[in-house]
Design a protein around this nucleic acid. Sequence first.
DNA 1: TTGCTTGCAAATGATTTGCACTGCT
DNA 2: AGCAGTGCAAATCATTTGCAAGCAA
Lengths: 148, 148
Amino acid sequence: MASEIDRSVDEQVASLLGDAGFRYSTVRRRIVATLLSTGKPLTNYQIVESDDSLVQSSVYRNLVVLEQVGVVTRLTTDSEFARYELTDRIIEHHHHLICGGCGDIADFSLPASVEQSLNLSLRKAASKFKFSIDDHRLDAIGICVSCQ
Amino acid sequence: MASEIDRSVDEQVASLLGDAGFRYSTVRRRIVATLLSTGKPLTNYQIVESDDSLVQSSVYRNLVVLEQVGVVTRLTTDSEFARYELTDRIIEHHHHLICGGCGDIADFSLPASVEQSLNLSLRKAASKFKFSIDDHRLDAIGICVSCQ
DNA sequence: TTGCTTGCAAATGATTTGCACTGCT
DNA sequence: AGCAGTGCAAATCATTTGCAAGCAA
């Protein structure tokens, strides 16, 4: 059930922060809680909006820390605002449907087989450039229901 | 040979601009030429740097126009600068190897079969969200040779 | 001579940072 | 106590924009 998942997320975040010498402060807890409950990438503004106790600059500063220690990932879309989501250490690997109209993002996953052949092809392509791959990102760009 | 390719690119750009009521000015020609000859996504700064006659604000302004008419695509990476490349109407569909160190980008292509199963999966995933897909982007994030 | 373009300088706005204060540990 | 964290206000800096001059149809 949800509370169990949350607890394990909390523990992971706490240890990722702790190992790097950071505290799991109240503000950080609230940011993680917001990202977790919303379940999709949020802009700084959206995070602040969703929780009265939060302040712009503190959220910006904490997102940087949370990214450093591997709790969140910064996404840059064509929208003017950066968005943040929990890393795939915390939630499962997935991809994005990005709305070109409003910038909204929905998550989705690929069949394991497709994901595999993708990884294989990426590794192959990268080796030509002597490029070492850490990660990949795949986004579909289109128009969401509300914008159609 | 190269000059033939260039000529057809020029014609395409000219008609894309012309159809939208824009001129294929000298500055625009130079920007397209730079993107074409470099063969990888460039930042505004890199474009200006590569051609003394170009001015920052004009390049910014023209890249917006060129994007509007479908000649270039704006890429947002985690680097602090946006990058631009010719659209796949002008050059062939491809993907990116993005260096997390220096932000440099190399192009690569996937086998047609992989690209196909990818498209199929994307369409399937999108239909669940009633999301209409225009395009997709796939990037591999890693470290390039020079940064290793 | 109309109106798209351009260069220069000034404005914009998301994000970052300085600083004094709070609150863990 | 000592130092990470925070809120507020001011600073940054990539990008945008106003404006007067340039250039093509």
